[in-house]
Nucleic acid binder design. Structure first.
Lengths: 322, 322
DNA sequence: CTGTAGCAAGAATTTTTATGCAGGGAGAGC
DNA sequence: GCTCTCCCTGCATAAAAATTCTTGCTACAG
């Protein structure tokens, strides 16, 4: 009975506040009540569902998928991009664009950026970054050596250098192969001052941009020459490895998979990656789905940028382990 | 192209803010942007209609009608109550309840309340007021003398006194008829100290509660005895009078209608009413529709409390003047 | 090139909003 | 009928949000 009168007044207050855009103090003066009461009425209006705030997702964005990923994998942030088709080329381009924007919008001054150089998606990202003022970022650190093929090596160097220029940072290159011929060869390579200096920066990185690799010989791995012997590959698969970040492997449950290979990799150790303030992972495509799943379960990824199709796959019922 | 990325981020910010209820500063920290930027993004989210706040009217309230009345008549506030049927009894009861709640909620400390005593609706209002602490209001001033019939006279006194008690105020009665027999008689009555003291308070009133009267002999006027001669009535109708507040008359356009009768009325002059900080008018019912329309056009009413049917009639196309 | 207008972002500041008391009933239970 | 508890309000103040100011760049014209 009296309730409707109370609600009417609350409704009126909500109307003045939200629809007419008036200040609480103004509403209070108008109605001869205190500002505190107006504030409380507005709170009550929310509780009573008199005011409802809805968020309408702009076309091309997928907040539900992003939320799903965040919740399912305990991920701090997820970015899901729209894709015309589930094909690697289209996916990489879109992921790259989105990652570039996110990086631009959220890059702090003085950051030390780590970049695992050999993902094509990261390349697409760099293509889309707008130049920033000099000194915006401090260093761009290459977190993984180049691959055997000198062309790819060059690409890696170029990518790091370009990203450094675009972010106004100083590039710190890792002029060494990603995989040394042997443990001994690695030790020799680490003797190089420049290599060591770069590697000493690994623990200072504040923002790491990584690709997620699939374990089965993907186009990139294949192209990179036969860095792994068949033996090593079977070691990895036997140990359950499903994917890698910076050539550090993990299984579908996100457990780190250590094999003798580890000692030959010249790149950021998993441990360092874990300590990085923000790890942004870029990956999409059907072939990488399970690798991404594993990567997310390692708990090292802070931001995943992926495509809508992969996001949906990642949210489908847990892959059954035979 | 890049736009969708920007909107995605804005959407995410809106989601965190509205859906997850996080603070702007927290969101800013999470996304490594400044709080100012979050604030601006939220503003943009409104502009872009990514967030929409809708107000759902509780059943029994009519914000559209209230808004319509406010806008059509330049009225500061309107209260429209739900009514089961368009019958005077039901209408008065509901208006009374609503007015009582509004008064309770918005009465300031130390107010001087004026009450034009002879509306049944005001009576219903007083019936619904909960007692307030002593001294909440300062005075309750009777703004119109009683009517010829002593019974009604008593009612007027009682109403004023009760309202005073309920608001913790001191009653200031006008122990005189509402309409004196002649100008001279009025002067004599004004000689009374109590009457004069009460009338001197008219200009101090901060909140006036008035009924709106219809000019044609309504039940109340009829019941109150023949206070007007047929001549006086025709004077009024000839001058275009359509209704009154405190026996001060106006036409359909809200112009004040002065007739010789004015000099015989013992009550608050229109001029004083205009100067009152808040005038709350209570009226509803088919018969009063046009009187209310005129009253609103006088520009003296600050809050109108009426019923849904009358509100709709008041919002229908302007009455055509033949 | 150099000058100038126009943005955009963050830090600082102001403005606006929310909330922790404290006082004063109202209503329930004894 | 009386006490106790709970709730409501306003004031004062803390917290949060918006805005102003400043800086540093971009883009365009001369």
């Amino acid at each position: 009975m009296a309730r409707v009168n109370e609600l009417r007044l609350i409704t009126r207050v909500a109307q003045m506040y939200y629809t007419e855009g008036r200040r609480q103090a103004e509403i209070a003066r108008h109605l001869r009540i205190s500002q505190a009461t107006v504030s409380r009425m507005l709170k009550k209006a929310q509780q009573e569902e008199i005011v409802r705030t809805t968020i309408v997702a702009p076309t091309g964005t997928f907040p539900e998928l992003e939320t799903g990923l965040r919740e399912t994998y305990g991920l701090p942030e997820a970015i899901v991009v729209e894709c015309a088709e589930d094909s690697p080329g289209s996916i990489m381009a879109r992921i790259g664009e989105a990652a570039a924007h996110f990086l631009e919008a959220t890059l702090q001054s003085g950051e030390i950026i780590g970049v695992s150089s050999w993902s094509e998606t990261i390349l697409k990202m760099v293509d889309n970054i707008h130049p920033m003022p000099a000194g915006k970022a401090k260093y761009v650190v290459q977190t993984l050596g180049g691959m055997g093929d000198p062309t790819v090596q060059t690409h890696a160097t170029q990518l790091t250098t370009r990203l450094a220029r675009l972010t106004g940072a100083e590039p710190r290159l890792l002029s060494a192969p990603g995989v040394a011929q042997s443990r001994e060869a690695k030790l020799v390579l680490l003797g190089d001052t420049y290599v060591r200096e770069t590697m000493e920066l690994f623990s200072k990185i504040t923002l790491s941009i990584v690709g997620i690799g699939a374990i089965e010989p993907s186009s990139m791995l294949a192209r990179s020459g036969n860095v792994f012997t068949p033996n090593e590959l079977s070691d990895l698969t036997d140990a359950g490895a499903i994917g890698d970040m910076c050539l550090r492997f993990f299984d579908l449950d996100g457990n780190i998979v250590k094999t003798p290979l580890d000692d030959r990799v010249i790149g950021m150790p998993m441990e360092d990656l874990t300590n990085v303030d923000r790890v942004i992972a870029l990956a999409g495509g059907k072939a990488k789905t399970e690798s991404i799943r594993g990567a997310l379960r390692t708990g090292t990824v802070d931001v995943l940028v992926t495509d809508e199709f992969t996001a949906r796959r990642l949210l489908e019922a847990r892959t059954t382990i035979p």
